[in-house]
Amino acid sequence: MSLWNKHAIFERNSIILILGVLIVISIGGLVEVLPLFYLKSTIEKVDGVRPYTPLELAGRNIYIREGCYNCHSQMIRALRDEVERYGHYSLASESMYDHPFQWGSKRNGPDLARVGNKYSDDWQRRHLHNPRDVVPGSIMPGYPWLAKTELQASRISQDMSVLAIEGVPYTSEMIENANVDLKAQAADDDAGAAALVKRYPKAAARAYGEEKGVVTEADALIAYLQMLGTQVDFKIYDDKANLR
């Protein structure tokens, strides 16, 4: 009786069949996914990538809530046409604090991995309100309520605590000051701006919205969009050290 005839055992016992299927599928998963956790070359060492500020994180939550990832990717692939259009290809380290990552797989709209500082805050505001006001041929829906809805950020420090468990280096100082930092980043000349920048280098603190004293959902989302892809300085980043 050859080995081929052993399949009768699997065909006659459903539990053994399920276990067999599980083992075969997990081999594929383990071989493809597990090495990414221990291979040091997976994530490049770069300077400048820091965790999101509370305001950016709140904006990111809105980005996820509104399903922006359904039409926008955040992944510039290492292909000539993409680098020519969007800038340097995305590095793994640029999304190492993303849980979940927003790489996306659909591009009804353009890639957003390096949209930070590409357009003015005013443009982002008008564009979110009604994209056709600034881009006549756009098929993106308008999000006019974002600028009218005050940001509910009372739980932002809890979000940060959870991310800290997942490995994002939020310190207890950052988590304690979450709401102070959030307010400081959303206004011009806030007294807390210096402390914010000390905790989150290069964080841009300014009034993202038109209404003074109120932080709207649009403000948070714009703060998030305006920092996307701006953390790594590609003038000093060494491409050749990270060829793979």
């Binding site: 090495p35 291979l39 040091k40 070359s41 290492a78 292909l79 000539r80 680098v83 290809y89 491409d239 990270n242 060829l243 793979r244």
Partner: peptide, 17 residues
């Protein structure tokens, strides 16, 4: 601690560079 590089040493990043 590494991975097999292949005979040609091909890498996506070198290719685009």
């Amino acid at each position: 601690s590494s991975y097999t590089k292949g005979l040609f040493g091909w890498s996506a990043r070198r290719a685009v560079a």
